[in-house]
Design a protein around this nucleic acid. Sequence first.
DNA 1: GATAGCGTTCCTATAATAGGAACATAGCTA
DNA 2: TAGCTATGTTCCTATTATAGGAACGCTATC
Lengths: 251, 251
Amino acid sequence: MQAQSTVEKAVDILFHLHAEPHSCGVTAIGRRLGLSKSSTHRLLTALSRRGLVEKDDRGRYRPGIGLVALGVGALDREPVVAAARPVLEAEAEALGETVFLVAARAGRLIVLDKSEGEGFLRAAPRVGSTVPIHATAVGKLYLAFGDGSVEAPAGDLARFSDETITGRTALEAAVARAAERGFAENSDEWIPGLSVVAAPVIATASAGRMLAAFAIAAPTPRMRSLGHEEMGRRMMAAAARVAARLEGVAQ
Amino acid sequence: MQAQSTVEKAVDILFHLHAEPHSCGVTAIGRRLGLSKSSTHRLLTALSRRGLVEKDDRGRYRPGIGLVALGVGALDREPVVAAARPVLEAEAEALGETVFLVAARAGRLIVLDKSEGEGFLRAAPRVGSTVPIHATAVGKLYLAFGDGSVEAPAGDLARFSDETITGRTALEAAVARAAERGFAENSDEWIPGLSVVAAPVIATASAGRMLAAFAIAAPTPRMRSLGHEEMGRRMMAAAARVAARLEGVAQ
DNA sequence: GATAGCGTTCCTATAATAGGAACATAGCTA
DNA sequence: TAGCTATGTTCCTATTATAGGAACGCTATC
């Protein structure tokens, strides 16, 4: 991690505090990010003056309330989120399972929005969280339809479960299959017991660029009874509705 | 606005983008914040590399998805939020109106959490948003019970409605009344048609410091039929439950 | 087709930053 | 209790990223 600019170092501190479950001390943060203790302290002080980090009683730092304020409403600026929201709600209602929207941002796959199903056992992704690339339906879609801004990680493909695809050729085959069918699936490859079927949102107005992925997540047995092919068609239809709404808005 | 550090300038850009309803250009941002065009551009580029801002098709900038990621979960770090959540939900359920939790952060009053009621006409504060001090029940509580970190704005008190208290002596009288009764109220003083009754969350373990305010918001006629005194007692009881949960957790 | 405004890039004097060292304090150990 | 270790904070100066003017290419407008 080579952070040239001061701003990037400060942002790195924010993400580090975000990732840690508990408050962190100056020394620990500096050591983790390769910054000196005094630099870390000054950056934290600056962030603290703007409320992006807070100091607890013991002088340790945690994410501040300012981050919540900045985060709220940022999603509404995403045209694709605005276009997808009613479609998400309608699909979740109709299927009774969680549907969600994922897009590539800065080379990673981020959950943009979701509408949860009603089952006692249901997927509950966190909006704003990151999902892996090589072990998810959405990741395969981006490898198949994306513009190359999303790539499978270099080196060994991490194994999350017994079903995780860890071979390059097997992954290429899965990606080719997704390109051919127009949708992708994932059964237990990331989280045992969880299956996902996803389809790409492609807007012709944006030169056929893939803007996001529309996906349904359900417990694996439930997904099997819903039917992978059937859900694939359904997600493609939903993604097309999102794309149509986007172009309607754009006109 | 005197921002010495680079980090603070970058954060100011984030807040500016957050406040603007639409995407902003480099020139406009720089002009607004007193930065040169090239500096603004470099700060935006740094923020963009970390996903805190995004560039749309026309080269304009808007808040990025990274802010959502950082914002999500930041609230869960607040012990008072964790302690208050079940109480919020129970009160909202019992009363059918919106109840919410507000605390002082960096001299401002921030909505930490809420549980919405069920009415067609109901209060829907945004988590993370700021509320004024001199025109709200929570503000009066902080003036009465706070440690001085929250103060009424200098100069003229802004008038939000016909009922807004704009005189210093009248405000002092309202604060004294809140100190005496142990709760505060606000009828139409901020938003016409909206009434709020609030009570302070005071933890004896924290040397009697006021940690937050527990409040109910309802349309003014509805609040009248619920009874201000009755709701005052109810909010004090709820705030006491939150305080008790906090001390139980702290042990 | 001319023009005004925009985002972007280049360059160098400048000013903020980095990091070592010293300090005060808290927590732990013996 | 006394000593020790590790932490958060402050001070200081060489270094280095930064600020901002100027120039560039581009787009939209008239």
